[in-house]
């Protein structure tokens, strides 16, 4: 195959991986703390809306990003309140947040902007555009490695770099800091944390709050980096796919990179496949098959062709002191 096509697929893979990776890492913090969060999808949508709206009103991508993160945190706290303080069903709370996001963003979008729920198109100054990394132009003509650096590593928005940098950072936090030790402990055995004199509630709120930050980054990426506005339901299941990737990654940040890149790569692969003929059959690959492919892939991965994934032991269960 033409090397240029390979590079272009890898380049799109990186772009498409970023939002899944951000959402997946967010889920990792939450689930490691013992709170399952099926509402990441909804939080991404809320954040995307906040980013699109604020970036348009202020003309600043950074303010848009800030708004996205704040909104992500706000809904994480709602989820935290339901699951930690009220000890409600975490799945149901997440589902409620997803519907709330789908409904409220479309409602407000239509009421405020009258463009079928979309926020207005952003100028480039109000978006995160591609960055050219230093030396990218200089090395472009170096065979093999040149295009790898200039074409794939360079040329993405800052949020992509944030996403990939967050992987080693998360690893360091989890395995080298006090906070990480406690976070991992509270997801496995909250009673051990409680008797060690550490607040289970505080740690879990910290976990879901960080999840909100990441969901905010992921949402902002969708609206003001990958696209130039918010559109209803633009998250299109990315949050759910991120959760599947998290299972696939066995709740490990490095695994998360691999799992989400797999999803990103397959989505990138689907782009040139659209309308392509299947060799020998003369059939066209229907567009719908391409659209459905990430979801089918998720089901196949979840069906456990991945070995046994053991979730954090206390995940999904509210902590109640035993007498």
């Amino acid at each position: 195959m033409d090397l240029a096509i390979v590079y272009s697929i890898l380049d799109s893979s990186v772009r498409l991986t970023a939002p899944i990776l951000l959402a997946c890492l967010g889920g990792l913090y939450s689930e490691r703390s013992g709170v399952f969060d099926i509402g990441i999808e909804g939080k991404m949508l809320f954040s995307a809306f906040a980013a699109g709206a604020v970036a348009w009103h202020s003309g600043s991508a950074w303010l848009g990003l800030g708004a996205a993160v704040l909104v992500g945190i706000a809904f994480s706290l709602l989820h935290g309140y339901a699951s930690i303080t009220q000890r409600g069903n975490q799945i149901i709370s997440g589902v409620a947040i997803n519907f709330l996001a789908a409904g409220l963003t479309a409602l407000l979008g239509k009421a405020w902007y009258g463009q079928g729920g979309k926020t207005p198109q952003l100028a480039n100054e109000a978006r995160f555009t591609s960055l050219t990394l230093p030396g990218a132009d200089a090395v472009k003509d170096v065979p093999f490695l040149g295009p790898l650096y200039s074409g794939i590593v360079s040329g993405h928005s800052i949020l992509v770099y944030v996403a990939f940098f967050a992987v080693p950072f998360t690893w360091w936090v989890l395995f080298r800091t006090r906070f990480g030790l406690r976070l991992r402990a509270v997801g496995e055995n909250p009673a051990a944390v409680d008797t060690a004199g550490i607040s289970v509630v505080w740690l879990r709120y910290a976990g879901v709050t960080i999840c909100g930050v990441f969901a905010g980054l992921a949402g902002a990426y969708l609206a003001i980096a990958q696209s130039a506005n918010f559109a209803p339901n633009m998250s299109a299941g990315t949050g759910f796919i991120a959760l599947a990737a998290l299972i696939f990654a066995k709740w490990n940040p490095v695994g998360a990179l691999g799992a989400t890149f797999l999803f990103g790569f397959l989505q990138a692969l689907a782009i040139p496949l659209q309308g392509a003929q299947i060799p020998g059959l003369g059939w066209q690959v229907p567009v719908q098959a391409i659209t459905a492919s990430p979801y089918i892939l998720t089901v196949i991965l979840l069906a456990g062709f991945i070995g046994k994934a053991i979730p954090p032991k206390a995940g999904g269960v509210a902590y109640v002191k035993e007498r």
């Binding site: 006090r178 402990a185 409680d194 008797t195």
Partner: peptide
Amino acid sequence: MVHQHFMLVENFTVLENVILGVEGGRLL
């Protein structure tokens, strides 16, 4: 206190369990 049901994190090492809560700083 040594509880009837041990208050240990099973997939942690002995050392990690011992320092949990008394890490003595932000880094481990």
